[in-house]
């Protein structure tokens, strides 16, 4: 990649870094609107992050360096993934053939260290949350990879920005039903991985029912800021993959492309907020069924594509 391309990517990178908390704000505002409230100010997530960055930290006597490294590695993995995922434009900063696998495994790296940091506290609650996280994370993996198979066959490429690029227009034309199923599977993966209703409720206040929140109970100060921001960034990245797959743009110039993507992201956040208002979270032992459902959607899409693409 040339220097000019890197320089040209700076405004987009700045936007990608600045956007995530806004999406959280939109989800919260949507929920408030459904409940007939005004809700917190639009910039509240940014203010929360600022507040957390300025606080000190409290560490438990039980913890080791793994606990301190957890949030850092998690956020670093997500930031690295952000250089590979197309967000506002249709290209990515460091994209290369095969980067889609790296993105999936960077998410896994982040999960590994979040889980280890939780286990480092020696708390039963956090152990429970960690166990749930690895269970649901493992179960959403087949759905994610089945969707990726469909996208890879459609584009004959393993570069994420090409897999969800403009040639998906053709794929929607030939294997439209499969693409629809992929979007459904990716939406469930998004809700699982970002700990949203119906899998997890980020607003719950009972440790026994939490998944992600209970794992990060003992983090405070800048550590917790990293975690909050990381969760929002993960939402942005997975949401972008979903949106690029669902609404392929046929190579429009950047000044049309980027604002449209932004509107789509706002729409996605609104939809997630609406889902959170319109349904309760599932019982924990029902979640595997939902993920199995996502896997079936992905499998059906793969079947349709495989039978469609081979003559």
């Amino acid at each position: 990649m040339s220097v000019t391309r890197v320089i040209a990517a700076i405004p987009e990178a700045a936007a990608v870094i600045a956007l995530p908390p806004l999406l959280l704000s939109i989800v919260v505002k949507t929920k408030a609107w459904f409940a007939g409230r005004v809700g917190p100010p639009w910039l509240q997530p940014y203010l929360d992050l600022y507040k957390l960055m300025n606080k000190g930290v409290v560490y438990s006597k039980t913890t080791t360096w793994v606990f301190r490294a957890g949030p850092i590695v998690n956020l670093a993995a997500l930031l690295t993934a952000a250089t590979l995922v197309p967000v506002l434009s249709s290209g990515s900063l460091f994209g290369f053939a095969g980067d889609v696998i790296l993105v999936a495994y960077l998410f896994a790296l982040g999960r590994m260290f979040t889980v280890l940091a939780a286990l480092d506290t020696g708390s039963s609650f956090e152990g429970m949350g960690a166990s749930r996280e690895v269970t649901f994370g493992t179960m959403s993996e087949p759905a994610l990879f089945l969707s990726l198979i469909v996208l890879a066959i459609g584009s004959k490429s393993l570069q994420l920005s090409e897999m969800v690029g403009s040639q998906l227009f053709a794929a929607w034309g030939t294997v439209g039903p499969a693409m629809l199923l992929v979007v459904g599977a990716l939406l469930i993966v998004l809700l699982t991985e970002t700990c949203r209703v119906p899998v997890d409720d980020p607003a719950t206040h009972l440790e026994l029912t939490m998944i992600h929140e209970v794992m990060v109970l003992d983090h405070s100060g800048p550590d917790f800021a990293y975690i909050t921001y990381g969760a929002a960034l993960k939402f942005l990245l997975l949401g972008s993959i979903l949106l690029h797959a669902a609404f392929p743009h046929p190579g429009w110039p950047l000044w049309i492309d980027a604002p449209l993507r932004l509107i789509e992201l706002v729409g996605l956040a609104t939809v997630v907020g609406a889902i959170e208002c319109s349904m309760a979270r599932l019982r924990l032992n029902r979640v595997p069924l939902l993920l199995a459902g996502a896997t079936v959607l992905g499998a059906l899409a793969a079947v349709l594509t495989l039978t469609g693409s081979m003559r």
Binding site: N54, K55, G56, Y59, T62, S123, E126, P222
Partner: peptide, 17 residues
């Protein structure tokens, strides 16, 4: 961030239970 004055490391405590 943690080196700044006023953001001192709190004394280690037991894990939240």
């Amino acid at each position: 961030l943690l080196r700044r004055p006023g953001a001192a490391l709190a004394a280690p405590v037991v894990t939240w239970g």
